[in-house]
Design a protein around this nucleic acid. Structure first.
Lengths: 348, 348
DNA sequence: CTGAAAGCGCTTACAG
DNA sequence: CTGAAAGCGCTTACAG
């Protein structure tokens, strides 16, 4: 005869967890009633509900998600998908903030987050297959560059999706949430102009990203507001890296040595720009006022600390999750634009 | 009569994906045979296998994981669990490297990674329940501080697990993979000693972390090797942050102004130490040689670039995944210690 | 090597 | 409000 307790002692794996059947037996009701309680307790008498709840607590019952998924045709999980060469993202402090925010917003709904990467064509195929197979109820997509093929694939597959940042070059409407890049840039450039600067230059981001485009537009609009001339020697482009910012600033210094302010489209690039300025013997903010964008951790460690534009990453992630869940529930998902905030420190 | 094609046109959701039943019908075999092919094709005739494979390709069949999980009692997924207040981890560049590495190593096995955080007691309970319910086959645990309660919880629940870094203060054996902190520290301190420095100080990491303990031990061993005196004024402690490194270095400078070398237990702290040294008017490496640890992106942006110790994060993640999968398959999981590499730049 | 069949743990009309 | 029952899509002994 086998001792039932022996299973307890077997190394590792505990006994098989309780099922809805066990709960029903303890509560003295049918499995259907237990399930109804699990679904929210509608159409269940108070007595039954309480008996079931007590049984659940007593047994430490936890629903088997695989069984539930099989019948509901829902996975109960969501993917966080990175579609760029990931090196870039994993170095971006904004990304980690976003990832953490999404994980926690989903956790509040008891929805696990699957982290997936799709950097090259082979990965994209694999991931598309996986997602199209319904292994996930929706996807949070991080994509910044124009013409991301994954967006099209997922739309064709009919998978609920919300993007972080406005997807450029998409035909159909795609739900997304983004910071108000243009207004943020305008706040910064106005700040520079208000301090009396008249030769305001910019290191813009890549023009195939929404931040690259919008922040540059904001810069130009404020130049007009203040009646400052547009001078293409005052515009350089970088790729959001430190090195890119350094090169951009060096280029501007060569083309327009009289510049007295510099709006850089990201903090990382601004850090690089500071290096170039330092090398050129310009002091900040005395000779050149410098403004960044992001309010990333870097902004606090530069010398001087960076005046920058804060993006509301916490709200971005919670809004992304909110929109995605609404879309999964069948709502049509809108677009959300969140305000930024000017953070004044010492560099401008 | 309903038109079958009408399902194609319904907005969004495509038709119900093909099942094993459809594959069997197309291939002209039973569902059992299809399943056998899916499991690796053992005990299946070549003809059947090929027919099934062709049907799978034709239909674009993808297994329904929920159904599979229900019968195999395996989830086919793995959790990546963060057990510290996450702010710290999400700011640590090593962490993102690790997360990316694990995601990709698992993707190669077609295993999705669930990202979970358990920073406070409420989260720990939630996560423990979730994991104990078998929603995951195993967990990759990132934990650096002594006496992590999650480790005990997961062990009790019998969940396969491998840690990143040696878990301090655990009674039972826990599988882990770690860089060889002690040897790495020894390489660095030897490098400092070989350059003729004799008053070698250190900013050690927290003593409730393995890196904090081991790197300090390595430092002391090399002092002995070179017959250098142990002087407690040459030892300070930091918390792996820039500010901590700065404070530690300032403290050392005050207590032992004659120090001529500084081994700092992380690059981030070394960056802070550089600030303190700069403020004290010490030039690096002329007056004080500085060595860091991690070879993080920061090491390249400090001035001067940092001589440091590279941890093999790519291998750490792939080894963690390898050990975890072996453990899930039933093997007893060993411990893996990976060698580090001294990276000489300009600071020492 | 192969098919028929049971069963994994749920949810959800359907009666009552 | 509640129970009995079908069914979600797989895997896996069990016969043959």
């Amino acid at each position: 005869m086998t001792e039932p307790e022996s299973r307890d002692r077997s190394a590792g794996k505990p006994r098989r967890p309780p099922t809805i059947h066990d709960v029903a037996a303890v509560a003295g009701v049918s499995r259907g009633t237990v399930s109804r309680v699990l679904q929210g307790g509608h159409n269940v008498s108070t007595a039954s509900r309480e008996a079931v709840q007590a049984a659940i607590d007593e047994l430490g019952y936890v629903v088997n998600r695989a069984a539930r998924s099989l019948v509901t045709q829902r996975s109960g999980s969501v993917a966080f998908l990175l579609t760029e060469p990931q090196e870039r993202f994993f170095e971006d402090p904004n990304f980690t903030t976003l990832l953490r925010g999404c994980t926690q917003a989903l956790a509040a709904h008891d929805i696990p987050l699957l982290l997936m990467t799709a950097g090259d064509e082979a990965e994209r195929r694999r991931v598309t297959r996986y997602l199209a197979a319904g292994h996930v109820d929706g996807v949070l997509l991080v994509s910044s560059h124009r013409g991301n093929p994954m967006i099209e694939h997922l739309r064709e597959a009919g998978i609920p999706m919300v993007c972080c940042g406005k997807p450029l070059g998409q035909r159909g409407r795609v739900s997304y949430v983004a910071a108000d890049d243009r207004e943020g840039a305008k706040d910064m450039v106005r700040h520079l102009a208000e301090s009396g600067r008249t030769r305001i230059a910019t290191v813009a981001g890549p023009q195939d990203t929404p931040g690259g485009v919008e922040r540059l537009l904001g810069y130009r609009e404020v130049l007009d507001e203040y009646g400052l001339a547009h001078d293409e020697r005052l515009v350089a482009y970088g790729d959001y890296t430190r090195a890119g910012g350094e090169a951009g600033a060096a280029e501007l210094l060569a083309a327009a040595p009289d510049l007295d302010a510099l709006f850089v489209a990201s903090d990382l690039m601004a850090d690089g720009a500071l290096t170039a300025l330092d090398r050129a013997g310009r002091s900040v903010p005395e000779d050149v006022a410098v403004g960044g964008f992001d309010d990333s951790p870097t902004a606090l460690t530069t010398r001087p600390p960076l005046t920058t534009v804060r993006q509301p990453w916490d709200r971005i992630s919670s809004e992304m999750v909110r929109l995605l869940l609404a879309q999964i529930a069948g709502d049509t998902a809108p677009t959300v634009i969140l305000p930024t905030e000017l953070v004044v420190r010492d560099s401008a």
